[in-house]
Amino acid sequence: MDLRQDIAVETPRLRRYARALYRGDVAAADDLVQDALERALGRLHLFKPGSSMRAWLLTITRNVYVNDMRGRARRPLETNMDEDLDGAAFSHRAVQDDTLNVRDLNRALGQLVEDQREVVLLVGLEDLSYKETADVLGVPVGTVMSRLSRGRNHLRRLMDDAGQQPGAPSNPLRPTPLRPATLRKLT
């Protein structure tokens, strides 16, 4: 069993996760992946055979990311990421998007609190099971589920709001938002 090979296989997924964490910032995302890979390769002896390499690498990536965020707490990521994305990064994408505006989604992701964003991404993008996500984050499955619900509700509300702003492209196809009365108000 070649663990290095297993890590190489997972690397594109780590890059995707990191790219989403940094909302499209390629350089920051690959720096994160590089740090995570170095840490993983330096600790290969700690990998438990029989466990999921993907989950282990995502755990490391997430921990490196959290440390990085703490380090740059005074320098919020939101600054001009959106402008970058409006321009180059997604310019090749067709504009026929049928249900949501890609830019709105990316911007909305940036407005989620970290706890919710990471669950939304691990489950929704990396397709981890709830149990695997709970293991990556070191929280109970119930916590994963509640963060996921709140995160997704918040995300949808942010996108609905973005769609209603003056000048923003309206989308008649977007389903009427249905929000449970119990939805917690997040600020």
């Binding site: 190489a8 995707r16 590089q34 949501l100």
Partner: peptide, 29 residues
């Protein structure tokens, strides 16, 4: 709507999977 939101995340970021892994990362590996 829930399904669409989930799919939209993939629409946004799945293209990363098709990119070549940069040399800096290959070197680490």
């Amino acid at each position: 709507a829930l399904c669409a939101d989930k799919a939209a995340l993939h629409d946004l970021y799945d293209e990363v999977l098709d990119e070549a892994v940069p040399a800096a990362l290959q070197n680490v590996l």
